[in-house]
């Protein structure tokens, strides 16, 4: 019989590769859990700097996500709905950070926003503002790397959404802005939520662009991934503990958000 069993409803040809996929993604995390130094967890957790790094990570990832929402949703709309020429080129350009090695992204940010950069030099000379090596730089680096994830998700949702609702709204006299606000946005809300979660998670784990553009200073620019990387050089066990903290906090946040905001609509979230 080719009909799947009632129990799981998974066709056998999908079962094995899916199981392999699960093992591949989950086993490394299991490895972390098994090797974690559970006995001296407490002193590691209260080590100076851990709280700072965690706070900074959560704060900067959240601000980066808000910035991405603010710029990314309109950008996704432009990519999905507008009639401007060169849309596909534009799409390729804004998704470049997805393929760019993050360290190169960090250098690119220097070239624009650094003290010697195109914009940064002007900011520095006119207003004495320097962006690198500040928390602002962390947020910028994370936004640069994470926003494309949101844009791609939202654009996909917009393309999948039925544009006839928007046409109907227009025939009923709604202007384009009202249509966007009252019809389009609610329609793609699950896609926006999924994109925001993806974006937040990516920002939380960001390493390369951050250490390049923002540097590494405890309390201002040392996020959890940076703390983990440096701890790995000195004391791998401490790095494991820090990773577990990041893992626990991000899982907890995503699960809480899912219950609180995302409902059980079956949106592809977390």
């Amino acid at each position: 019989m080719t009909r799947p069993r009632e129990g799981t409803g998974i066709p056998t040809p999908l079962l094995v590769p899916a199981g392999l996929g699960i093992a591949f993604l989950v086993l490394p995390v299991v490895g972390l859990l098994v090797r974690a130094p559970w006995s001296d967890l407490a002193p590691q957790l209260t080590a100076p700097g851990v709280g700072d790094a965690l706070r900074l990570s959560l704060l900067s990832a959240t601000v980066a996500t808000l910035l991405s929402l603010l710029m990314g949703v309109p950008l996704a709309w432009v990519l999905a709905r507008s009639r401007i020429r060169g849309r596909s080129v534009l799409r390729a350009l804004v998704t470049v950070p997805l393929v760019l090695p993050p360290v190169v992204g960090g250098v690119a940010l220097f070239l624009v926003l650094g003290r010697q950069g195109l914009l940064g030099r002007w900011l520095f000379e006119q207003f004495d503002i320097t962006i690198p090596f500040t928390t602002t730089a962390v947020v910028i680096a994370e936004t640069f790397v994470a926003m494309p994830f949101l844009v791609i998700s939202v654009e996909g949702a917009l393309r999948a959404a039925d544009a006839r609702f928007e046409d109907v709204a227009a025939t009923l006299g709604a202007d384009r802005w009202t249509t966007f606000r009252r019809v389009t946005l609610p329609l793609v809300a699950p896609g926006v939520a999924a994109g925001a979660v993806l974006c937040w998670a990516r920002a939380l784990g960001e390493f390369g662009a951050t250490i390049t553009f923002a540097g590494n200073f405890p309390g201002t620019t040392q996020t959890m991934p940076l703390a983990v990387y440096l701890a790995l050089q000195r004391d791998p066990e401490a790095a494991l503990v820090l990773s577990l903290v990041l893992l626990a906090v991000s899982l907890a946040t995503l699960l809480l958000l899912r219950d609180r905001w995302l409902g059980r609509s079956g949106a592809p979230v977390a």
């Binding site: 650094g114 003290r115 690198p132 090596f133 390049t212 540097g215 590494n216 200073f217 040392q222 990387y229």
Partner: peptide, 21 residues
């Protein structure tokens, strides 16, 4: 005095060469 603690010496050198520190 330090403003950033880099992960290796070449990263420090790069930041000096770029004029960012």
């Amino acid at each position: 005095a330090p403003d950033t603690y880099e992960d290796d010496v070449r990263a420090v050198l790069t930041k000096v060469e770029l004029g960012e520190v």
